[in-house]
Design a protein around this nucleic acid. Structure first.
Lengths: 218, 218
DNA sequence: AGATAAATTTTGACTTCTCAAAAATATTAT
DNA sequence: ATAATATTTTTGAGAAGTCAAAATTTATCT
């Protein structure tokens, strides 16, 4: 049985490395540990065949490591959904809660949650929930940052779990499922302005921030 | 912030020591560690003022240790209630689930659970749930083992969390709230026979086992 | 290419938790 | 009271996870 720490490393490697090698520094930053700590752990992970490790180059999951990572991700995202749907925990807070709970739920409990929710496909941030067999859907959304001024879109997914960011989005009604219209986008100030409802509650944010909001056709 | 292990030790000391000193061997057995391990931990606990430790004599909680123990117990028992009420997990299984989850729930989440359940006083095993301030009710029930043959009682509490025992009880309808009539009690065979319903589904168990079933007037 | 800067790995050390086995202390029984 | 027994503590060791700082390797920039 992998430890909670091991699960966190594998999950993070999955999230940050898209098929390519993930540099150690990036992993260390994401997990908030020193580079030396990450190196030590990745060596252990490599010894147990969960990752491929190329010194000075980076890490990558093996099929076995990916399997575990997807299992952790399934737990995490089902728990997030459960916390929002059943316990009415604030949408912007569930990530942190799930971060702890994901290591404490048994398969039996997870099944109960999954059934109660009716086998959801997506979590409250719009992230796909891997199924029990380790399959995960990859639908392609566009970055809000690269969309057309004047058009309306539906928010599909938020690709940033930072508490602060999520609270900002929640305050301005920018959650998955909701509609936004791009009022303007200005490369000079690197900002764009959105209309989130009919009442004229507009919001301006940096284009870098908008690149973490994924949208689809309304 | 105490670690999960520290919380387990404090909880166990609370459960096994009734105001008196708890011998180290008993603590070690309850936690399934070697005696030396328990000694080492208890020394650390004593250094941080959570327990009083008298070498060769035993341990006891300080007020501070008791406060933490009751907090853990509150989490544990609220979670058990939640798992039974909301997630419909088998009554006999929730103890083990809660054993893990109790270390992963935040105060915010616990409040949500407590509210959703309507601030319950007792958990599914009939154990009292400490309130947020660390107060716990001590109602006095009688041991089923010491009750009168021929009389009927209401099951109030099960003082044994072992999976095997709970499944046995569940199978024979011996849960808190249900009624039992004592048909016979035989000191020679050290067994007693109970009637659990009108259909004549009787069950025979050892008097030692019946001493872990607490009852009150119907 | 050579020097500087950046990223990565190594080394030494520390905490928490654990066990096995030896040593010390209490308890019990004759 | 003294030997035998049971309990508890000590000692030595190891795994997991971490950091700080030194050493190494790779990348970058004249």
């Amino acid at each position: 049985m992998p430890t909670a720490t091991v699960e966190d490393y594998l999950k993070q490697i999955y999230l940050e490395s898209g098929e390519k090698l993930l540099p150690m520094g990036q992993l260390a930053t994401a997990l908030d540990v020193t580079p030396g700590t990450a190196t030590a752990m990745v060596k252990r992970l490599a010894a147990s065949k969960m990752v491929l490790y190329q010194p000075y180059n980076g890490v990558q999951l093996t099929p076995q490591g990916k399997h575990t990572a997807l299992d952790v991700l399934r737990r995490h995202r089902l728990i997030e959904s459960f916390l929002v749907e059943v316990l009415k925990i604030d949408w912007a807070d569930v990530h942190e809660e799930a971060e702890q709970l994901e290591h404490a739920v048994s398969p039996r409990l997870l099944d109960a949650i999954d059934s109660l929710l009716g086998h959801p496909q997506f979590d409250p941030h719009g992230d796909p929930i891997p199924d029990g067999g380790g399959d995960i859907s990859h639908q392609s959304n566009q970055l809000l940052a690269e969309c057309q001024v004047g058009s309306q879109y539906r928010i599909a997914r938020i690709a940033d779990q930072r508490n602060e960011f999520l609270h900002f989005l929640a305050k301005h009604n920018l959650r998955p499922g909701n509609l936004v219209t791009i009022l303007s986008s200005d490369p000079a100030s690197e900002a764009m302005t959105l209309r989130t409802d009919l009442a004229g509650n507009d919001v301006t944010l940096a284009i870098t921030a908008a690149s973490r909001i994924l949208v689809c056709e309304p």
